[in-house]
Amino acid sequence: MHAKIFDPDLIFSDIDIKDKDQLLDFIASKMYQLNYVKESYIQAVVEREKNFPTGIQTQQYGIAIPHTDIIHVNKPIVAVCILSNPIIFKAMGMPEEEVPVKFVFMLSIDDPNNHIELLSKLSILFQDKNIMTEVSVLSRDKIFKSLNYYMNR
């Protein structure tokens, strides 16, 4: 048995948002509506991304893993957004650099010690260009199934 990692209602593709803050607000608001995070998470995640950006340029794709302090979290989940037109994020640890982000994994983590495997597997997943390429062309429900498969194998 595996803990729930993704929620089909928190898998997004084909959304028409071009602005990073709007995108973060959009995903975080959905997480709030589904009770995974407190309302305060929405603003907190936008602010956190400004101060400590999470853009990651992997070998093939730009990834972002927006998240914020655990006090804003109710339940752990990973929201996924795949962008057909990448949005520019700042790079994690190098705010002077920009990363065109195609995959956003917004995290609500309540206790990092309980999610070491999840975070570790997620990093292996988003660094794998073959998997990410495969996932990027799927429909929403298939993205959910595919990501679950790769996270639980």
Binding site: N51, F52, I65, H67, M92, I109, P112, H115
Partner: peptide
Amino acid sequence: ACGCGVASSTIVAKKV
């Protein structure tokens, strides 16, 4: 260490 002390640092720590 990472900005938030939550996700990225955990990923790094586990690999080490």
